[in-house]
Nucleic acid binder design. Sequence first.
DNA 1: GTTCGAAGTAAGCGGACGCTTACTTTTGGG
DNA 2: CCCAAAAGTAAGCGTCCGCTTACTTCGAAC
Lengths: 216, 216
Amino acid sequence: MTSPTPPNSWSGAATPLPQPAAAPARNPAAARPRDSAATRQALVDAGRTLFATVGYDATTVRAIADRAGVNQALLFRYFGNKEGLFAEAVLGEALELLADAPRHDLLERTLAAVLDDEQGHAAEILMAVLRAAGSSQVGEAVRIRLGEAYSAAFASLVDTDDPADAAVRADLLLAWLLGIALNRSVLRAGPLHDPQVITAHVLRVATALLGPRRPS
Amino acid sequence: MTSPTPPNSWSGAATPLPQPAAAPARNPAAARPRDSAATRQALVDAGRTLFATVGYDATTVRAIADRAGVNQALLFRYFGNKEGLFAEAVLGEALELLADAPRHDLLERTLAAVLDDEQGHAAEILMAVLRAAGSSQVGEAVRIRLGEAYSAAFASLVDTDDPADAAVRADLLLAWLLGIALNRSVLRAGPLHDPQVITAHVLRVATALLGPRRPS
DNA sequence: GTTCGAAGTAAGCGGACGCTTACTTTTGGG
DNA sequence: CCCAAAAGTAAGCGTCCGCTTACTTCGAAC
């Protein structure tokens, strides 16, 4: 990659661009041979991490299989195709995660996932969906189902009688969290602000968005 | 494409997925032959539209050349490579657009571009950057420069003495607009709410975000 | 110990992609 | 009129990608 491309001066000092933090390498001690369940899980884990860090298009099935320490043909045996793995790696756990969350701290928890720079489990799923958005029509159904689930959950936080109004405000709050996540972990433009400061601002302003309109 | 893939039941009724609205076909009357400037411009326009509607990765140089009614080798003669065209199609005009905008209605104007479903010029540029975000490291510098410009512009709207605080709040507002754009034009999850209702909510709440903290 | 299906493997097919090359056609200045 | 440079073209090179196929190896039931 000492590429012969013309000297794009504007590419300047290349940012080291996010790399997926060397595979955990599938503990060879605990890894029993010929364990299809473990193989499936290894593929799901590797896939989710790669989708989250470099995006759907840039993630190749060869890379997933390598990271999982598995032959790539097994990916197709177990998941049909690349999109099948994406759906399983992202949708299933995301919905569980959301269903298990109590409503009263939903906003704080989601915000925490969005601001988690260590890339926890929840944050990875979120990023995977986000990064796949730029790609073709991949994961359309995954995005829609997830969007609906989050939208409904946030709508229950809005203090209003009008369901349509609740939907608008819930989607606006959801959009805010998406934007924060996008700006922080994908665009990576500008400095990374202190999560605590961000949280304080968002929680304060969210009150104005969710609460009843002032009778003014 | 009557594909032999396993019956992914969840792919259901395929959404017609955004298509770039048939090329304007380069008025053959006004199109003087052998006009390199016109050819360049045709490539830039075609590229911007395609990048905005289907994303960077999904846009092929062949598609750009076809839509521009131009031989694809010319794309490489004039712009070096695909990324060169992207930079020229997106960065230049975006910065002009921002520089020309008066500060007092910056938020409203940006919001209008974000909510413009007809895909005007400004909206196209914004979408192009957004959709490229999910892709590899393409347009990294483009994104960063554009982000900095917008961030600085919004920071001037914040009512505070602390420059760091202004930066945080400006970036949060910017993130909100990004999220709204993302949710509306890229994710396309959930219903499209009325732009006027959205604008009203955003302007109202933005006051709480930008204004001085209450002395409480 | 034999057998049979499941788990795992090596190799490669067909196609799309970004980009290049070798060529032809037109234009405009002397 | 001439001819070099610019504009435009046709074809294809090398590479990577998603996915398939034909095969080998293992493990457990009988």
